[in-house]
C-alpha cells in the first residue's frame, strides 16, 4: 500500500515535472517561428487601441478572441462583418447605441480614438486562431468556402 512518503514524492515530483513542461511549451509558443499573432505587425496605433480596449473594459460585455462577458457580440472579424464606417459610427456615438434594445455605453470617442480601436481590431483579425475565426464569423466561413 502507498505510504505517505510515496504520496508526497508523487505530489512534488509530478508538480515539478508538469510545471517544467509547461514553461518549456510557453517558451516554444512564443518563439519567433511559432508566432501566429503577427507580433511584428503591432504598431503604436494598435497598442493605443488595446489601451482604449482595456481602459473602458470592453471585455466586460463583448468577447474578443472568444474571451469576455457574452453580453455583446464577439468582435473578432468585426471589420469583415460590419465595415469600418459602421464601427466608427458606434464608437463615436454620443448617445447609447441600442441595437435590439440592448444598450452600449455611449463612449463618444474622438475620430483618432476610433481609428486606434479599428487598427487594433484589424490586427486581431489577422491572427491565426486555429480555425475559431471561421466559427465566430459566418462571413469568414463563406470566404473560405468560396
Amino acid at each position: 500500500m502507498l505510504s505517505k512518503k510515496q504520496a508526497r514524492a508523487f505530489f512534488l515530483g509530478g508538480t515539478t515535472v508538469t510545471f517544467l513542461i509547461f514553461i518549456g511549451l510557453t517558451i516554444f509558443s512564443f518563439s519567433k517561428e511559432q508566432d501566429q499573432s503577427n507580433y511584428e505587425a503591432i504598431t503604436d496605433q494598435v497598442v493605443r487601441g488595446k489601451t482604449l480596449w482595456e481602459k473602458n473594459n470592453c471585455m466586460g460585455c463583448h468577447t474578443l478572441l472568444g474571451e469576455g462577458a457574452y453580453y455583446a457580440p464577439e468582435l473578432t472579424k468585426v471589420i469583415d462583418r460590419r465595415g469600418e464606417n459602421y464601427i466608427k459610427a458606434v464608437l463615436m456615438n454620443p448617445v447609447p447605441w441600442q441595437p435590439n434594445d440592448r444598450k452600449m455605453v455611449a463612449y463618444g470617442f474622438s475620430e483618432q480614438e476610433a481609428d486606434d480601436l479599428i487598427a487594433f481590431f484589424d490586427w486581431i483579425d489577422d491572427i491565426d486562431l486555429n480555425g475559431f475565426d471561421r466559427i465566430v464569423s459566418p462571413l469568414a466561413k463563406d470566404k473560405i468556402n468560396n
Binding site: 516554444f28 509558443s29 511559432q34 501566429q36 478572441l65 474571451e67 486555429n130 475559431f132
Partner: peptide, 10 residues
C-alpha cells in the same frame, strides 16, 4: 489556449 492565437500544440 486553443483559440487565442497560439500554437496548435496546445
Amino acid at each position: 489556449y486553443y483559440y487565442i492565437g497560439v500554437n496548435k500544440i496546445w
